[in-house]
Amino acid sequence: MIIYAVSALFLLTSIKREFFFTAVLLEGYYIISRGLSLGRLPLVGVHDTIVFLSLATALFSLPLYLVIKNKGLSKRFLIITSVICAVFSLSALLSRPYSMPLPPVLRTFWFELHVSLSFLSYGLFGVAFVLGVIHFNSCEAEIERYQYITILIGYLLFSLSMIFGGIWAFYAWGTYWLWTPKELWTTLLWVLYTLYLHLRFRPWWKGKRIAAVGVAGYVVVLFTYLGVGLLMKSSHSF
C-alpha cells in the first residue's frame, strides 16, 4: 500500500517523464505483488479495479507518447494522462482492498477475461479522451487519427469483454444476457462508440466534432464503471 501511495505521488508530480515512468513501474509492482499474495487476478472491488484502470491508462499512453511527433503536444499529452491516473490512484487509496475469498460464481477464467478486458478497454478510452482534449486545442489531424485508432482497438477489447461476459453469464446464470441497469449502460457505451465509428464517415463530423464524441464517450465510461456500480443494484454492484 505504501508503494502504491508513492506511485500516486509520482503520478501527481509527473512534469518530468521520468516521474511518470517510475509511477507506472511502482503501480505495476503493486498490482503484481497483490495478485501473487491473493493467488488470483486482483480485479474485485473498487480499489483493485481503479488501480488496474490507472495502470491500463498509463501503459496505453506510453506508445502514443512516443509516436506523437510534435514534442509540445506529446508533453501535454503525458501531463494530462498523469493527472487522470493520479486522480484514479488517489481515489483508490480511499477504498479498502477486497482480500476475502472469492464467492464460487467468480472463480472462473471467463470472469477474469471479462473484467480485465473491460478495464483495458476503459484505459484505451481514457487515452482517447486525452487525445480528444489535445485535439480541441491543437486541431492536429495526426492527434485525431490516433484517437480513432485508440478507440477502434478499445472497441475491439470492449466487444470481446462483452462476449466473454456473455459466455460467463451463460455458464453462471443460464443466460447470456440479463436485464440490469449495468447491462443497459454497457450497451449504451458500446452503441455510443459504434456511433463514433460511423459518424467518422460523414465529412461534417471530421475534426473537433468527432473528437468531442470520443471525449463524451469517456464520461459515459466513468458513469458506467463508477456511477452504475456504486449507485444501482445489479450483478455488477460493488
Binding site: S159, L160, G166, I167, Y176, W177
Partner: peptide, 9 residues
Amino acid sequence: ALTGGVLFC
C-alpha cells in the same frame, strides 16, 4: 449470439 460475437470480433 456466440456465432455473432465471434464474427463481430
